[in-house]
Amino acid sequence: MKDIVRGWRHIQQRYNLIGSKCSQCGNVFFPSRVLCPECRRKGKIEDFKFSGEGKIHTFSVIHTPTDEFKTLAPYVVAIIKLEEGAQITSQIVDCDPDMVEIGDDVEMVFRKIKEEGEDGVISYGYKFKLKN
């Protein structure tokens, strides 16, 4: 139940890439922060929706995942630099791992993240795919 509640609290973040922005200095954060590390108490933090567009900063190919992700293997996990600034770690779906390169343009898609067994809750959220 604790996992369900934790997942549910992050639905806006996971479904719609809602992070935060400090309107004082313009820095954006994902996941969202309550305090701007630069402006500290002078910062003004508000919700911010990322466009879901970005570029691959770096990536690796996972060949031996844990059991629950075995049906996906081999798959690509990348650090993505979002257009607006923040960095995010995510799987790159529907691609041949040999075709992925640093600097590739990617966009957000909506996918199943994990299932808590056959009778548990299903978590959904963002992943990314190559844009072309």
Partner: peptide
């Protein structure tokens, strides 16, 4: 469908 696609994910992509 990919291993991480189901009726919910297809519906969301179509709706967006």
């Amino acid at each position: 469908p990919g291993p991480d696609e189901d009726t919910a994910t297809i519906s969301v992509e179509a709706a967006r």
